[in-house]
């Protein structure tokens, strides 16, 4: 117990040293290079930009915009993905038939859709939301179909022998059995959606953290770009640690299952 705590403490200290060294290198590098804060802002510049953006209320407004878009898009995407998975998935025959089509659309990455969405829906929220829905729904669909193709027939046989009706087998066996696949797909999609949001905001929005990152650079306010990058990184860590991981722990880990997924992040 005590040894474990010491080890944890050491780990934290070393980790802090690592981050400290990074900032030190950044500071020394940016001041020695002498290329000016436009090309290579110093940590202090970035901090000042952060304070300024915060006081003007810009950061808060952008953050709320991005979060609103993200959660709306991911929520809708989850819904669409689930409905599509239910339609295509409850029959092995149909699941097999549609797998190549789904693989093909899954292979058309989200950025490749962005131009056509701009043509169809213009620059704005519709394009952003459509992109996020697409990017969340397909990994869910893809992983669910993969789960159906590999579903252990003994589970279904066992339930049939216990007298389960078709509906009872769907609700008690198939849906919970596919939940790990759905969650894995959702996690992959949620990660893609976050990256997709940044690029969509860069191209099709006039607010949000993604906009801040690209707009800062366009207006020669590189310090704002770096503020945006750091806020984005923290935001993703928060989403990942507090929303996605606990969800996975409550199901997949608890049931002792391992899911293999395509395009799974790290």
């Amino acid at each position: 117990m005590n040894a474990a705590r010491t080890r944890q403490g050491q780990k934290a200290i070393k980790g802090a040293i690592g981050i400290g060294l990074f900032f030190l290198a950044w500071q020394i590098g940016s001041s020695l290079s002498g290329v000016g804060s436009y090309f290579f802002p110093q940590p202090g510049d970035v901090f000042r930009a952060f304070v300024e953006l915060w006081h003007k209320g810009i950061l808060e407004a952008y953050l709320l915009d991005s979060l609103g878009r993200y959660f709306a898009g991911v929520g809708l995407g989850l819904l669409v993905g689930l409905i599509a998975a239910l339609c295509l998935g409850l029959n092995k025959f149909i699941a097999r038939m549609f797998t190549p089509l789904v693989s093909f659309f899954y292979a058309i990455v989200e950025s490749a859709w962005l131009p056509i969405f701009v043509i169809w829906f213009g620059y704005g929220i519709t394009t952003i939301l459509t992109l996020l829905v697409y990017v969340v729904a397909f990994p869910i669909l893809y992983n669910t179909l993969a789960g159906i193709r590999a579903f252990p027939p003994t589970y279904i046989n066992a339930a049939k022998s216990l007298g389960g009706s078709r509906l009872q087998i769907i609700t008690n066996v198939i849906l919970p059995g596919l939940l790990p696949n759905i969650i894995t797909g959702f996690r992959v999609g949620a990660g893609f959606a976050f990256r997709g949001l940044i690029i969509a905001e860069a191209i099709a929005a006039t607010s949000g953290i993604g906009f801040l990152i690209f707009d800062g650079a366009a207006n020669q306010q590189t310090d704002r770009t770096i503020v945006g990058m750091i806020v984005m990184g923290v935001l993703w860590l928060v989403i990942e640690l507090f929303y996605l991981k606990p969800f996975e722990k409550a199901t997949i880990h608890r049931w002792g299952l391992v899911v293999s997924a395509e395009g799974r992040e790290t």
């Binding site: 690592g18 990256r195 650079a217 590189t222 770009t225 990058m229 750091i230 984005m232 990184g233 860590l237």
Partner: peptide, 16 residues
């Protein structure tokens, strides 16, 4: 450090 840097999606490095 790497965990944090990783969470800054690569796409966001484009302007820099």
């Amino acid at each position: 450090l790497l965990t944090f840097l990783q969470s800054i999606a690569g796409i966001a490095w484009i302007p820099l």
